[in-house]
Design a protein around this nucleic acid. Structure first.
Lengths: 152, 152
DNA sequence: CAACATCGCTTGCAAAATGCAAGTTAAATT
DNA sequence: AATTTAACTTGCATTTTGCAAGCGATGTTG
């Protein structure tokens, strides 16, 4: 049952988390699922970050194997696959939240300052809202994209 | 002054954070600096995760350029370089905290369950303690290592 | 219902990052 | 003076990433 034992670097929880999430793309896909309301391959592809399709396919497969996302065939269009976060996936909200706050605080980003200050002040409310949306399958964007060529 | 403009994927704070931290090693080094009290190249090298020395050197350089760590020559031994987190670096504590909690919760790790429960309950106190230790240059380990061959 | 478009990939190949072992330099220790 | 130690660097093999093109199944259009 336990597939391949997959050699771990250590038993440290941080290290184990990073073996799944420690790359340039996985957490961005999760972000798109979490706060942008994306559900399809196409949307990730056009998210503005410029991920290659082979990498995207690979990451989605790995995230599914890791139990972070699920896929199901579209009801009305069988070509379309709908990706969705699992509970394990939505539990990454605090990680993404802290990454966002840290980046906005210490780097130059496109995020408006006032919004960051507000998010920091209302951390719990924000995270509750993220979870509520997930539970209710509400896929209206909670945060906007910040791509250089934001086609909106 | 702004060196090379370094093409960014987008202006999203999460994306920008991941351009610095999104790999398998950077956050582990930061973890070692933050809660294990490591300060030298040698210590990182022997941390049990098995990082190669060329990669370690590269990451330390990048983290320094990113303003996350500083280096200074040892007072008593001029061979020894002491690495230390900057304030920007210690501000990553919440990110690491959430990664640790998520990993311990959803994956099989070596972290004792009771300790995780306790950490979750006392998040603020824990983070305050991390910061206190940093300010006071207290480098006694706050959390243990979990390497398979933990030589302690 | 035939032609065309769209979705979610796969394939092939070049370029970059990573991993491994051995070597190097300057500073300490014996 | 010889040896050890710390912090790397170098060379090379392997792996991962990036880019462009192609492909099969499904859906839409005239």
């Amino acid at each position: 049952m336990p597939g391949k034992p997959k050699r771990r670097r250590s038993g440290c929880p941080v290290s184990i988390s990073l073996e799944i999430l420690g790359d340039r793309w996985s957490l961005l896909i999760i972000r798109d699922l979490m706060v942008r309301g994306f559900t399809t391959f196409k949307q990730f592809q056009e998210s503005g970050e410029g991920i290659a399709t082979n990498i995207l396919a690979d990451r989605l497969r790995k995230l599914e194997k890791a139990g972070i996302v699920t896929v199901e065939v579209g009801k009305t269009d069988a070509r379309r696959l709908n990706y969705r976060l699992t509970e394990k996936g939505i539990d990454l909200a605090p990680v993404l939240f802290e990454l966002l706050v840290w980046g906005a605080w210490h780097q130059e980003t496109a995020a408006p300052w006032a919004q960051i200050v507000s998010m920091r002040r209302n951390r719990e409310a924000f995270l509750a809202e993220v979870r509520r949306r997930w539970q209710e399958r509400d896929s209206t964007p909670l945060l906007p994209g910040f791509s250089r060529a934001a086609k909106r």
